[in-house]
Design a protein around this nucleic acid. Structure first.
Lengths: 100, 100
DNA sequence: TTTATATATCTAGAAAAATAGATATGTTAT
DNA sequence: ATAACATATCTATTTTTCTAGATATATAAA
């Protein structure tokens, strides 16, 4: 858990928004049919639609968020679902509260 | 209090370190003679020495931290002293805990 | 009032990030 | 096997950040 790496992710409004949207997938995204609810998160396409950015940019963003430990990808068939990693998010906030 | 602006400040290790050093000025800097203790913080020169970066870079960093609301400058004669703005720091952490 | 000192701002070059189009990869459906 | 589709990666361009040297400003000292 690197404070500066996570802070870099959070220095971009789109990436912060993605993280916030993933907090309430039912509220922020259309329902997934095949997969039960949003147990594994939201597929990249839905996230892309909501950002209005290109597919490659959103994929790059999600990869950086994954590298920082903020989201977890799960593959189901051709889709990759992303969900928040609450442990890292909590660890980051706790670290700030303690060290900052 | 802009989350992304503050996060951008925190995305650089030197800037995070400065903020942490300012938490305990007596511990991290030589004593100031004229001014009573570190009531108004630490002068730029001391901070610069500790970072090892150039004067202009440190000044730029401190200005960006000031613009983000993280530090407060006070001028005493030829020196500018910087101290933490605990309210903004707390507000930032609280905002993350709530919104993130 | 000149000189020295501390800090801020300006200028510029190098490095990193944002962004998108094109292409590759992996999966499903036909 | 082939076609269609979702996502990742590659390539390139534009924008932003990092960094420092040079210069400007403000204050204090001589």
């Amino acid at each position: 858990m690197e404070i500066t790496e996570i802070s870099k992710v959070l220095s971009n409004k789109t990436r912060v928004a993605i993280l916030q949207w993933l907090k309430e997938p039912e509220r922020n995204f259309p329902p997934h049919q095949d997969i039960d609810h949003f147990n594994d998160g939201v597929c990249v396409g839905y996230i892309q639609d909501k950002t209005g950015l290109s597919q490659s940019t959103v994929s790059t963003f999600l990869t950086s968020m994954q590298n920082a430990g903020l989201v977890i990808p799960t593959r189901h068939g051709k889709w990759t679902y992303y969900r928040r990693d609450e442990r890292t998010i909590k660890a980051y906030i706790d670290a700030l509260a303690q060290k900052l």
